[in-house]
């Protein structure tokens, strides 16, 4: 069995988000880049599955769409244990563009992991689009994956509860938190080994851009917080009731 994990390259979650002067593009200066948090958890789970599968899982590939600057993120994925990486050499223009690029390398994998969204554009789209382009089944909001006799046991969150599913391969699992506990931190040995692991660079396909961002806006500044004394809970309820009108 072969697993593919999609790897998004996103600004660190504590980044102060800035844009260029006319607010048409994100300003990447001074930004620390990380593996998209859900992708990192997905990779962690994939590694755990491989380690406990005997030899059922042959290899774990990671893939991303990005320019050469994003290779650090792929190397990190290799350093924690992925076997091979694929980079499609293009700027990710929109979700459909990214999914279409990934579709050219995603054929032949039995299990594909995507994160539920990327923490930059919060698109929540690439995984589902890729599954559709490949014509394979998908499950979203996946919070657990087990493999039993070649069959998948998938836990997913639904609005109002959770479910355990039996699914067959191939499958694209769109994962959220819960799928693995803590992401792995690369060890020195892993970092050394990652240097000699295969990272294939592929030219992008010509793909139409279906959506584009026109401008960015920062949220309106918030009015100062109104403070109420510790023993004035009653006053707080009155304010919520009469002033804010939310009770």
């Amino acid at each position: 069995m072969k697993i593919l994990v999609l790897i998004g390259n996103v600004p660190d979650t504590t980044t102060k988000v800035k844009f260029n002067a006319d607010k048409t593009a994100f300003d990447p200066s001074g930004v620390q880049w990380i593996i998209n948090p859900w992708d990192e958890l997905a990779l962690t789970r994939a590694l755990e599955l491989k380690e406990t599968s005997g030899s059922a899982i042959e290899s774990i590939f990671v893939a991303n769409v990005g320019r050469v600057e994003t290779e650090g993120t792929l190397r990190k994925a290799l350093a924690v244990g992925a076997d091979e990486a694929i980079r499609i050499d293009a700027d990710p223009k929109d979700a459909f563009y990214v999914a279409s690029q990934l579709a050219q390398v995603a054929n032949g994998f039995d299990l594909i992991f995507a994160g539920i969204e990327a923490s930059d554009y919060n698109g929540a789209a690439v995984g589902g689009m890729l599954a559709e382009l490949l014509g394979i089944q998908s499950v979203s909001a996946v919070s657990g994956v087990q493999i039993e006799n070649g069959l998948l046991k998938i836990s997913r969150e639904i609005d109002g509860g959770s479910q355990l599913l039996g699914m067959s391969l191939p499958l694209l699992a769109i994962v959220q938190k819960g799928i693995a506990k803590e992401p792995r931190i690369p060890a020195m040995r892993g970092i050394m080994m990652a240097r000699s692991k295969k990272l294939t660079v592929i030219a992008p396909l010509e793909v139409e851009v279906l959506t584009s961002i026109v401008t960015f806006e920062s949220p309106a500044p918030k009015a100062a917080c109104k403070m109420v004394a510790e023993d004035q809970a009653k006053e707080l309820i009155r304010l919520l009731h009469e002033e804010a009108k939310v009770l």
């Binding site: 919060n122 789209a125 995984g127 689009m129 959506t211």
Partner: peptide, 22 residues
């Protein structure tokens, strides 16, 4: 929602539609 997020991207590909979430 969990369900909408699962369906909408697939649907957009089927309809050759551009998709924006949230």
């Amino acid at each position: 929602s969990n369900l909408g997020k699962a369906i909408a991207p697939r649907l957009s590909v089927k309809l050759n539609a551009g998709f924006v979430s949230g």
